[in-house]
Amino acid sequence: MAISREDVIYVAGLARLELNEQEIQDYTQQLNSILDYAAMLEHLDTEGVVPTAHAVPLHNVLREDEVKPSISHDKTLRNAPDAEEGFFRVPRISLT
């Protein structure tokens, strides 16, 4: 199996997800079956094929540097889980 149980715990940690034992087993199995499926691509001959940077054949979608109105304070904070004095309030994450 390409993905080990430890891989799942590690990735869950990066994503700040708390998984129970059953979920760890389920995701290990599911992630492996997804990767196995994608592994089919390895059988294709990709000699000379330029790596795909984007699925849509477009480039240089650019806008001019013109200021547009921002949204109101009210709207900005409407979906905030917590707010105070115009700030979003979030649980403190200690860095040191």
Binding site: G86, F88, P91, R92
Partner: peptide
């Protein structure tokens, strides 16, 4: 402090 204030 147990919370942080964020300005975007």
């Amino acid at each position: 402090s147990d919370a942080s204030s964020v300005d975007y």
